[in-house]
Write a protein that binds this DNA or RNA. Structure first.
Lengths: 221, 221
DNA sequence: AAATATTTTTAGACTAATCTAAAAAATATT
DNA sequence: AATATTTTTTAGATTAGTCTAAAAATATTT
């Protein structure tokens, strides 16, 4: 079965929206995710349904079918592999790669994906710490917690981010809060949920809730 | 200025068709190149003309404008760089890369192209021996002649091919007539323009006109 | 130069993807 | 339960790209 780039973008959006919630995804949330009108979503959703990529009942939202889920995961796999390529091989920074990978993920060639994967040494995570599904769609699940959830004295290593916007990532670069950074919670202010952290056993500084809720850590025992 | 993939495909086709002939390109030849109807070509040609990418006069054919030529060359550059990537880094063979590069050439990011170029060490030729234009659109011109033009006793090295079809390239692989192969003309048969050649100073065999007219050599002095 | 053939353009229609505005259904509020 | 609000769908239009069939222009042949 073949898909247009637009159809693929809808599949990816539905996957993203339903990844953590089991319930059907609403027309409105898709239109929000893709910046299109709800009317357009209804149209597209009917086409994807006729292609049996999603289950769709009027007014009830949509869920991915097994083939739909498989295709969505393949797109995520491609996107994240290309991001690794761009950062590891072409020296792009983690805040620059999203838009380019968004285009590259639509290149159609299974052989290409598998060779790229091998060329990159079968990476398990992309430059933002997100897991790369394997050829069968299986993710490596790693237990990671928002930095915001840690208590005074807790320690951990930065392993991912929730936000992917260039401005957020560039801010993290300035702070030194990149993947692999070691963090210890020195203080937590109830009032605004900001924290004072020690970075790599050296500098101490304060970070806002806006920052700490969007960073994932692997907690040290 | 932004272009759809279709517009880019037309620009590339017009470039290809006008590369060696100075005259305007006919609607019909474009429709032949792209496997579309002449009516579709007329439509698209009018749009590209309104975008000032081509000069177009009814019934007179089209030529690229300066910006049109620049964009076409940029596409050729991208296509050939990606082909080098696919062969050098991902171990694809020269007969497998065209279709994938056809997709990759539409990825929009100037930075990506320049970094890819650097990553590949600024290659001057693609896996078929075709020159890769530099960032300014300049080609390395190399004097190369069709194998079919050589006379008995002439020697040379294979530096390119005219045909890019997988079946032709696979046939060349079987014969050992790949880029860099040394060829000496042992015999030429007037009747069917076939030749007997010696390959790399070793094996001797006969090749048809269909083959020898589609191979380029750099003649040894 | 007139007749014929070929090429190119126009006309009109189709699909994919989108939109706005209005109607219908579902949900929330009084 | 009736009404109001929100969400979703339908209706109708638009743009890009395509097609076939017919008309117009150009080129070729006699």
């Amino acid at each position: 079965m073949e898909f247009t780039q637009t159809e693929e973008n809808y599949l990816k959006a539905i996957f993203k929206l339903s990844e953590h919630e089991g319930k059907p995804v609403s027309t409105n949330s898709i239109s929000g995710e893709l910046n299109t009108s709800a009317a357009s979503v209804t149209d597209m959703v009917q086409r994807l349904s006729s292609k049996e990529m999603i289950h769709y009942e009027k007014y009830k939202g949509v869920t991915l079918t097994k083939p739909g889920l498989k295709h969505a995961k393949a797109l995520v796999r491609k996107h994240r592999l290309w991001e690794v390529f761009l950062v590891e091989k072409l020296q792009f920074t983690w805040d620059e790669v999203h838009d380019i990978a968004e285009q590259l993920e639509h290149i159609q060639s299974d052989e290409l994906v598998e060779r790229l994967d091998a060329f990159l040494d079968h990476p398990r995570f992309d430059p933002h710490g997100d897991p790369i599904p394997d050829a069968d769609g299986k993710f490596t699940v790693s237990q990671r917690v928002p930095l915001a959830d840690l208590k005074i004295g807790d320690k951990g290593v930065v392993v991912g981010v929730q936000e992917h916007s260039p401005s957020f990532l560039q801010h993290l670069d300035k702070l030194g809060l990149v993947l692999g950074a070691e963090v210890e919670i020195i203080e937590v202010f109830e009032f605004d949920a900001s924290q004072v952290i020690r970075l790599n056993g050296k500098s101490e500084f304060s970070i806002s809730k806006q920052v700490n809720k969007n960073i994932f850590l692997k907690k040290s025992p």
